[in-house]
Every structure is written in structure tokens, then in C-alpha cells.
Design a protein around this nucleic acid. Structure first.
Ligand SMILES: [Mn+2]
Ligand SMILES: [Mn+2]
Ligand SMILES: [Mn+2]
Ligand SMILES: [Mn+2]
Lengths: 221, 221
DNA sequence: TTTAAAATTTAGATATGTCTAAAAAATAAT
DNA sequence: ATTATTTTTTAGACATATCTAAATTTTAAA
């Protein structure tokens, strides 16, 4: 089935919200995510329901069907593979690739996706640490990840992922030398604002709760 | 100025027809090229005229403005660079890349185009021998090319280009071992149907006039 | 040079995707 | 249990890109 770019973006957004919440997605939440109006969302939900990509009951929100989830995973796969290409092969910074990948993820050619994956050496994660679904939409089993914002004083770990999509946030991380794979330790946690004092690469840094909530780590010992 | 995919395709088609004929492009010719109706073309010509991408007088056809030509060249540049990428890096056949490049040529990011060009080593021609405009829309001076269909008995040359866009034609060339760079010689020319007897790589082949008109060679001695 | 044919444009319709404003339903507050 | 608020849907409009059928202009023929 041939989907428009707009339809694909809705599917992807619903998938992303479902991953976060696990529940049904409300019209308003989706409208906010898509930076559009609730009425536009309602129209689109009807259309996607007719195409059997989601289940939708008036006033009750929506969830993806198996079909819809498969399409979402295919788009996510393309997005992340292209991000790897842009960083690994074209020397883009991790803060520059999301917007371009938003376009490239809509290119239609399974052969292209699969050959690109092979060319890149079957990467398992994208430049922001997000896992890349394989040709069947499956993720590799990956180590358990925790948001830095949920960590306690004394916790140690390895940086596994950061939220992509906001260049200024990623540029800030560049500036302080923050990279995937680094060892970090929570030196202290200020309970009144949730900010953290971090030790990383010999440096001491302070992260606001907001910043810490966009960083995922794997806890060690 | 942000153009729709459809607008870009019109600009590109007008450019291609202009290269062929050198004259103004008629509504009907453009309709045929775009596989659409003349009325749709008229609507689009008005829109593109308003955007100063072409000059158009009712019933008199159209030509690109400087502005329009620059945009056309930027799209052609992207198309051909992506074709090189697909063949050189992803191991696609030259018969498989045109349709995918038709999509990729619309990706908007000058930085991407320029980094891709560098990654590919600043290629001067695409897999079908078509020249690739540089960042300023300029072509390298290239040796004079002649259509094989215009050659006489006894002419010798090197294969420089083939018409892309028709997979079955390119697959036929694959089958007979025809490649860019080969030396060929016109053994004979049948005047009544314009077909040619060719010697290439030790083999003797017969090309119809139609096939010969889709092959360009550089004449030698 | 008047008529016939071909090419082109206009008029009116359809489909997609979006919007604002108003109506309806669900949820929260009294 | 009513009333008020929030959420969601519907109604009606607009922009893009396309189509068919009819009108107009240009070109070719008689
Ligand atoms: Mn991204
Ligand atoms: Mn990413
Ligand atoms: Mn091509
Ligand atoms: Mn080509």
C-alpha cells in the first residue's frame, strides 16, 4: 500500500507515543506531537483506520494495528540507518542528521534500505544510541537502559543514548565533550530541583533534570 | 524558495526538453513528458511563471529563466550524484538506479549534496555517462559526443553514454556485455532501416536505429 | 481566405491535507 | 446530580495538484 508522506509521519508519531506511554494515544497528544490541530488529526485517524493501520474509536484515542506497527518500524529503520550513513560516511555531526533523515526515511525502496544496511555493516544503533530494527522489524536484545534522571547518588554507568531531534541539545553535549560510550558517575543529586552533579572523563558537570531526562545509561556494578 | 516535488519535476522536464530541442517547450510536449494532461500543464506553467522560474506566453510555450535553470541543474546534480552512490557504493546495477534517484533528487539539503559529492570523489559523470554539474551548476568541458545512430560505416569510437531511465534497455545492454568505455566500430550501416552492424569486444552485434539513437560515443582517429 | 484540424486554455470537478469555528461528548467540579 | 471545563468531533473553507469536457486560439488545408 502506497502511503503519503503525511500518513507515514502520523504512523511514526503514533508509534513513538505508544512506545512512551504503552497506552492508547489521545487526539490532542498526537496533535501536539505533529504540531497540527486536533481536527486535522481526527480526519487522518479516520483515513488510517480505513486503511487498517490503526484502531480508533471516537473519543477513545487510537492504537496501531500489527500492520501499522510494521510500517512504523520500517520507517524508523530507514530513519536510523540514514542517520548512521550521514554520520559515519558523510562526516555529519550527530546534531545535524535528524532533519535530513526525516526526509530520507520516506524514500520507497526496500532494496535500497537493505543494501544501505549492508553497506553500513549492519549497525545495531544509530548515532544517538537508538536501536535499529532489522529487516523483520526486530530489535537486538540490548542491555537494560535507565534514564540518567532516575539515577541515585553513587550510581555509575556507560552512556548508551541521547534524545535526538533537538540540535541545540546535542550541540551542548558536543561542547562539554559528552559522547556515547563514556563512563559517568552520579556524584550528587539535588533533591529540590532534580539536577545532578556528574563525573565524566575526569570532569565534573552539572545537569538539570531536563537534560538528565534526555540521557540513557547502562548501570554498571 | 520552497518548491513542491511536482514543481521540481516540471522544472526538470522543461530543462531536459530544452537541452534536446533548444527551442521553446510546447504544452503538449511537456504533457507527454510528464505523463499528464495539457490542462494540468497549463495550470502549472502559470504557477511557475508567477515564481519567476519560467517565461510563458499563452499558446507560445515556455522557457526557463536563469533562476529556473539553476534549480533544474541543482536537481540534475542531485539525481546523478545519487545514481553514482547507488552504483558505486551500494552495488546496484545501472538499470536499477533511475527510479530511486527520482526520489532522492528531491531531498533538500545543500550540505548533504556537497558532502555526498566529496564522499564519491567528485565524479564527473553518472553511471550512464551523463555529466554531473558542479556546485555552481557548471559542467566540466567534455569530449565531443556523437549519437551512434549518426555514425557512418567505418567510424570507430569509445562508448561514452547511454540513455538512462528505461531499465529494460539497460538490461539488454548488460546481456550483450555492453559497457561505458568499450571500443566499438561501425562495420556496416543498413541504409533502409538505419540499423548498424557493430564490432565490440571481439563480438559482432546488430543494433536497431532506435537502440543506436540511445548510445553516445566519442569518435577516435 | 474561408474552413477544417490541431493545439492550447478555461471551466468545473475531485482528492488530499490542512485550518477555524461551532457542536457534541467526556471528564471534572460543585 | 447538575453544572462547568476540557477534549474531541463535525462543518465548512482553503490550497495544491490533478482530471474531463468545452471553449478558444493557432496552424494547416481546401
Ligand atoms: Mn532522528
Ligand atoms: Mn537518531
Ligand atoms: Mn537517471
Ligand atoms: Mn543517469
Amino acid at each position: 500500500m502506497q502511503l503519503s508522506q503525511s500518513e507515514e509521519n502520523y504512523i511514526k508519531a503514533i508509534y513513538a507515543l505508544s512506545e512512551e506511554t504503552g497506552k492508547e494515544i489521545s487526539t490532542n497528544d498526537l496533535a501536539e506531537k505533529m504540531a497540527t490541530k486536533a481536527s486535522s488529526v481526527t480526519d487522518m485517524l479516520k483515513k488510517l483506520t480505513d486503511k487498517d493501520l490503526l484502531k480508533y474509536k471516537k473519543y477513545q484515542g487510537c492504537t496501531l494495528t500489527k500492520n501499522g506497527r510494521e510500517i512504523a518500524l520500517a520507517i524508523v529503520r530507514k530513519h536510523r540507518l540514514w542517520e548512521v550513513f550521514l554520520v559515519e560516511k558523510l562526516q555529519f555531526g550527530w546534531d545535524e542528521v535528524h532533519a535530513i533523515a526525516e526526509q530520507l526515511e520516506h524514500i520507497q525502496s526496500n532494496q535500497l534500505t537493505n543494501k544501505l544496511e549492508a553497506f553500513l555493516g549492519f549497525p545495531k544503533v544509530d548515532p544517538h544510541g537508538d536501536p535499529i530494527p532489522n529487516i523483520n522489524g526486530e530489535f537486538d536484545p540490548s542491555p537494560k537502559r535507565v534514564l540518567l534522571s532516575k539515577c541515585e547518588k553513587g550510581n555509575k554507568g556507560i552512556v548508551m543514548g541521547v534524545e535526538d531531534g533537538e540540535p541545540s541539545f546535542l550541540q551542548y553535549l558536543n561542547k562539554i565533550g559528552f559522547k556515547l560510550g563514556l563512563n559517568i558517575k552520579v556524584e550528587d543529586r539535588l533533591s529540590f530541583d532534580g539536577s545532578l552533579i556528574i563525573e565524566m572523563d575526569g570532569k565534573t558537570l552539572q545537569f538539570s533534570h531536563l537534560v538528565a531526562s534526555k540521557i540513557a545509561i547502562q548501570l554498571i556494578d
